[in-house]
Amino acid sequence: MAVWKKTAITIVLLAVCALLYGIYLYTRKPADVRVQTPVAEMTAAALVGDFSADETAAGKKYIDHAIVVKGKIAEIKTDTNGEATVILESGDPLSSVTCSFYDDEMSSVQKLKVGQEVSIKGICTGKLADVILNKCSIED
């Protein structure tokens, strides 16, 4: 085969690969946090403590990462729109851990009881008054 033919085929193949990769990047769905390996596991008290001690350092460590937080349920909120949130006690009256669940985790959240100890996996998005976890699910 002539060299120019080989070159042409290579270029076309590369272009197709680039296009497919582009489409993949463009249509990629956000990662399912439920199947991710957490970077850290800790109690709600330790997580809030870390953020209170040094918000920047804690942010670097936890924000955008999947973590598992263990704690006692202070409040369960389920909205008719399908939103389910669990608030974990941290021992600090001014700051807890707010965990916003995946919509399809509603049924498992409804089985929980206030006061119960639970482990929740989610993506840490930062701290307002509470440290907030997104895309949560219950860890067994």
Partner: peptide, 28 residues
């Protein structure tokens, strides 16, 4: 889904706060 807000029934003072990273999109 995790915006914080407080308002005072007497003075009408109201505050909202939301974390930018907490916005969930359909595409990554």
């Amino acid at each position: 889904k995790s915006a914080m807000s407080v308002f005072d029934a007497t003075s009408g003072q109201i505050e909202f706060a939301v974390l930018i990273k907490g916005f969930e999109f359909k595409k990554a």
